[in-house]
Write a protein that binds this DNA or RNA. Structure first.
Lengths: 354, 354
DNA sequence: TTGTAGGCGTTATCAC
DNA sequence: GTGATAACGCCTACAA
């Protein structure tokens, strides 16, 4: 058991040169049938597998892409990864995965190891803590292809893939208004993420069109994004000035609002409409099922990976931002009795999963 | 932009040999302070990063471990990955991630690329479709360290990390019986997975101790593990011979049972107790919150990765199976009124998350 | 204190 | 048809 067999091993055993072995295995022209046969048989017998590391070194291409994300346990990110993986594997690439846990220092270290590992390109959704982008700039300056998804940085000439958060939020809030809800509380995400701003903006726009304004005390930041956080916040607000609907920047926050409502005896959806964002797996399972805005995670991953492979193979790229559409998912949490449970007339909605 | 700087580049620019550069950068003894300084400055300026690929080739060590799992979107697996990553990154290893999507052919291909990539070791939870293990045996025969987790194969001398599924199931069913439920329906997982058998066995044992038997029509397989599947199955069964409790092999199936019950006007937990397995993220958010058995996913990942690194660094190993404990999580779905909502007396339970 | 040479596994190039 | 050689980037005996 002296490790993996190499071309040299086969060559030595067969008393031929390793270049011949290499050619025989790849069916190059100009190798006698007999040699080819002998080589292939021995290779099979010795369980020969080409050494990808040696190949990487020689070709200066690792056929590996790096993925930097906050956390795999987020349903959204795990679907994105599936999309990335699908494209990668179909094109002969491996995926190296690193999680920042939303930590900036860790992110910087990860960038270093990505560079060292000589990945052919990197897909990034940066950490919540990240406000400066020199580490990513460095990769770009080295000529390493980078595609940002979901969270896009304040940098020049990047390639990005996002969903139309503004429009998604707009549709969500418009739906709430269409259902007759009037006083909307917006639970927003971390202020430093562009997606938070865009969702807030979409929310404002829908209200504006209805002749309303989102007053400052009707928009509350949920920086941590835990269910406990939003539950606490909602409980306080429901106690002194209850809204009649909540539009949360993500489903977890929405679930917190539902919990608070339940504990305080506020009926969802009749006394309070609740709308989330992201369509987490649990959203269709809570009671009442949660209306939300679905983001095409798998497609984002596919798109981002495709763009990256394109950049890698073409050695050049056009800076741009690809915007994918969200989809409003209307469930029971925003369908008060008065408009009827099965009234799906408002706008392009669709029933829940499965 | 001629790619990454190499030792040679620095050497040439400084008119010294690349071995000197190498030594200077690593603070080897016997390099003049002056040289060292010059080298380090230039390295910094050129943004030099050691080429991990070259290192891998030379040392015959890639400092990369492979992870083969069915799907990242499963909450359980994503927590396992987090545990693996944590250990890996803290020990200077990268993680290559591949999903089988429960597909056997894909799994075999993945094993090939893992071998080609010269990963230093592999962590595996194999596909549901997989019934033969030659591909894993091949890795083992090549001397490639492998650790199996959660789903362990029928192979000799392997290293495994699992949870005590039998005991977890036993505790779960015992709790149901303690609560006064009598007629228990078991929704089991795919029959070919050892975990399914163990959970079923634990279920039987608890019943046996209570002087009952699990009759054949009270154990139903849910091979796909979707919510729709179990919902359909339960609806049929509830219609002609309703049990008073369901013990599902996973939370998704349990959620399906709850849905079926809700649609048929069966009250959970008073008319039907529902117990899941795995403690998915959504389990605490459904209504009523779902009792379940939590598996320490993160710890499984940590343990499996630690064992693997140990095997890698020691070049030898002792076949064994590490068994981690599950934890019964009692929530409202198995606490009928008659025993009181806050009666946590039965056995070592604990309240839900957050 | 520094340089030289060889090799990790592969393949492209040139030579016979 | 086949072989020898060099090169990818790095490290490390061994030499000087």
């Amino acid at each position: 058991m002296m490790g993996q067999a190499t071309l040299k091993d086969i060559a030595k055993a067969l008393q031929i040169s390793s270049s011949t072995v290499s050619r025989a295995l790849k069916d190059y022209p100009g190798i006698s049938l007999e040699t080819r046969k002998k080589v292939k048989e021995l290779a099979e017998k010795l369980n020969y597998r080409p050494n990808a590391v040696a190949l990487s070194l020689r070709k200066n291409r690792s056929f590996t892409i790096g993925v930097i994300i906050p956390e795999v346990v987020h349903f959204f990110f795990s679907t994105v990864i599936s999309g990335i993986e699908e494209v990668a594997i179909n094109n002969g690439y491996n995926v190296i995965l690193c999680q920042t846990n939303e930590n900036h220092e860790r992110e910087k270290k990860i960038v270093e190891t990505m560079i060292s590992s000589r990945v052919d390109g990197v897909l990034v959704s940066y950490a919540r803590e990240t406000h400066t982008f020199e580490h990513f700039q460095k990769m770009k300056d080295m000529g390493l292809p980078v595609v940002f998804f979901d969270r896009i940085p304040d940098m020049d000439d990047t390639v990005n893939v996002i969903v139309d958060d503004g429009k998604g939020a707009y549709q969500a809030v418009k739906h709430l208004l269409d259902q007759g809800y009037e006083d909307i509380l917006h639970l927003s995400g971390p202020k430093n993420l562009a997606i938070s701003k865009l969702r807030e903006e979409g929310c404002r726009k829908a209200l504006r069109e209805a002749g309303k304004v989102l007053s400052e005390d009707r928009i509350i930041e949920c920086p941590n994004g835990t269910i406990g956080e939003s539950e606490g916040i909602c409980r306080r607000i429901f106690a002194h000035s209850p809204p009649d609907a909540v539009f949360a920047s993500n489903d977890i926050a929405a679930a917190g609002a539902m919990r608070a409502a339940k504990e305080m005896g506020i009926k969802v959806p009749d006394q309070l409409g609740v709308m989330g964002f992201s369509n987490w797996q649990f959203s269709s399972m809570v009671d009442p099922p949660l209306s939300t805005v679905s983001q095409p995670g798998f497609e984002i991953g596919e798109k981002a990976a495709s763009l990256l492979l394109e950049m890698i193979e073409n050695h050049r790229y056009i800076p741009r931002t690809e915007v994918l559409e969200t989809q409003l998912i209307v469930r029971k949490s925003t369908l008060p009795q008065k408009t009827g449970f099965f009234d799906f007339s408002a706008s392009g909605q669709q029933a829940g999963l499965e």
